[in-house]
Design a protein around this nucleic acid. Structure first.
Lengths: 207, 207
DNA sequence: CTTGTATGTAACCGAGCGGTGACTTATGTT
DNA sequence: AACATAAGTCACCGCTCGGTTACATACAAG
């Protein structure tokens, strides 16, 4: 009657259960009891194998590489882009971000969880985010030397707006008159983001 | 030893306790036990006077009029503004919003709580917000008839960015290279918001 | 074959939660 | 003065939580 003994498998079952709960019910529903229940194992194993919930959660978070595709794109396209193409590159990055945020529920959950919590794990994620953000900003600043715009602020406004709107869209149908259930509204967002970035581009050309 | 009997006073003590907890520990710490403890009354009175926690919370939320100053400004200045002054009016509104969001912790708590929950109260707040937002947008659209910009989207981007950044600043010191503890960074945000709104203004003049 | 250890199982603990029932007593009405 | 009502007090319930202890046993090393 006793289960086959396989620590690796059990650890995997636990981690899978974490993912499943996050997707189905959100990070806030995570707990040592709920995870054990979902994984079909005894919670004492979470303590034995991970040290406790906090450590398990840290492992889960670190396994996710939320910025993997951004990093990939960064290395391939961005560094090679000519200054005239930077608006295109910036568009691509932000639209990538928007699409990623909208479609990846785990990302949304982490985003929301970061706003609610303040511990070493949120700090870890924030640092990771900063790192990739700084890399991108650095490239842009090099190629956009004499713009009249505040590049960090522009991209911060866009990314913040995307994040907030995506989180809002989870519970609210209409924001500021925009139907968030309608793809057309999101096209409008994309278009306006592009418009703003083109204006930035133009000021560079003029100078 | 028994307390003076004064239902009104007790109800006020309860509501005050709610405010105090929200300010000190956040909305998520609200509960029938914690409120009774903070108010120095027995929790059964919460059930008797308000019907339960949900109803009490609804009373608390409805008592807050988060958009009072915006509404006030709307009626006084905005409707009388000439088209050429609309950029100034828009700046004022968004800077008012930014300042309000940054300084009012109860507002931040509600904002965050809205992102986490989805019930009739969040719906109520969302509707209230929509109402004031639509009024503003309506005025702008009337006076900015032939802009090439998507006004709802522009203002949505700005308000979303403000909200998200304010919530982030609670736990994170630096965002996208910007030191959120430094007032200078916020000035840069304000300036960029103004810059964007001026561009919108200019396209109108040109047409 | 024996034995130590790691794996898995199950029962238990204290604390906090939301919620209820029973009791005392102050207060205004008659 | 007698009384009904409602304000306030207290003890209790069932539940879930995070965390621990005690125990049975599969398995590999000796």
């Amino acid at each position: 009657m006793a289960q086959k003994r396989d620590r690796e498998l059990t650890e995997q079952k636990i981690l899978d259960a974490v993912s499943r709960i996050v997707l189905k019910e959100g990070i806030k529903k995570l707990g040592v009891n709920s995870i054990a229940r979902e994984a079909g194992i005894d919670k004492v194993l979470i303590y034995r194998y991970f040290g406790g919930f906090a450590e398990l959660f840290k492992v889960y978070i670190k396994k996710q590489d939320f910025f993997a595709n951004l990093k990939e794109y960064l290395k391939v396209d961005l560094v090679n882009a000519r200054p005239e193409e930077m608006a295109e590159a910036a568009k691509k990055i932000h639209l990538l971000h928007l699409n990623y945020a909208r479609t990846n529920k785990e990302f949304q959950e982490v985003l929301l969880w970061e706003l609610n919590n303040n511990d070493e794990i949120t700090e870890f994620i924030a640092n990771e985010r900063e790192q990739i953000g700084n890399e991108i900003t650095k490239i842009f600043k090099e190629k956009y030397k004499n713009t009249t715009f505040d590049l960090e602020v522009i991209s911060s406004i866009i990314t913040c707006a995307i994040n907030h709107l995506v989180l809002r869209a989870r519970h609210v149908d209409v924001y500021n008159g925009l139907d968030l259930q309608d793809e057309k509204s999101w096209r409008r967002f994309e278009n306006t983001i592009e418009q703003i970035l083109e204006i930035v581009q133009n000021t560079v050309v003029k100078n």
